[in-house]
């Protein structure tokens, strides 16, 4: 039996101030603080029944917010696995490629939402899907076309024909002074 003292495994790691973990935690704590201040300022103007829950939540949140702020300044993070209802990201070995894919994902989501706001779902969604499939999935042209048509079909068939969604006017259509075509889709009047 070995008599050498066992080396204790580290239980914590210290993270850099420039770590995205710190940035994310600052954002999260700021959101909580913003909401807490908002409720605090609104309290005097609220009806009595409307004050109870904000007060309870403020009292409940304050100590944990302070604990997290303190832990933020310590920058010490435990190494053990924690959350059991969550999976976490499955990071692999190629950090550079993962970073590139992460940036690509965020940029493409931003492009989709911007496209929807400017041109509307009917134009932006199928075009975005097809572009993504062409650029990043390197899918075959026929697959890209089928998926694009399927999305247009979903919007026209389910959302326009069955549900008759009142689409908001996209920016581009407002700027050119033309009513969004798909809000007066003749198929709805026909049936």
């Amino acid at each position: 039996m070995s008599t050498e003292p066992e080396e204790l495994a580290p239980t914590h790691r210290v993270i850099s101030w420039r770590s995205p973990e710190i940035l994310g935690e600052v954002i999260l704590l700021s959101v909580v603080l913003l909401l807490a201040i908002t409720y605090l300022l609104e309290l005097p103007g609220l009806k009595p029944a409307g004050r109870y829950l904000p007060i309870i939540t403020l009292i409940f949140a304050a100590p944990f917010w302070l604990i997290r702020v303190r832990s933020l300044f310590d920058r010490k993070k435990a190494l053990q696995a924690g959350a059991i209802m969550d999976l976490g990201f499955r990071f692999g070995g190629d950090a550079v490629a993962e970073k590139r894919r992460a940036i690509r994902f965020i940029a493409s989501v931003a492009a989709l939402f911007l496209g929807v706001w400017v041109f509307g779902f009917h134009l932006a969604l199928p075009i975005w899907v097809m572009t993504y499939l062409f650029l990043f999935a390197k899918a075959k042209p026929i697959v890209i076309l089928i998926i694009g048509i399927a999305f247009e079909g979903l919007l026209l068939g389910v959302h326009d024909f069955i549900i008759d969604v009142p689409w908001p006017e996209p920016l581009f259509w407002r700027l050119i002074g033309v009513e969004y075509l798909f809000n007066n889709w003749p198929i709805n009047d026909t049936f």
């Binding site: 909580v32 409940f60 949140a61 944990f64 997290r68 832990s71 435990a78 924690g82 959350a83 209802m85």
Partner: peptide, 18 residues
């Protein structure tokens, strides 16, 4: 229960209430 750290779990619960 759902967090490794109690303060994280309870702060997110408070955020949910807010």
């Amino acid at each position: 229960i759902s967090a490794g750290a109690v303060s994280k779990g309870l702060l997110t619960a408070a955020l949910g209430l807010f």
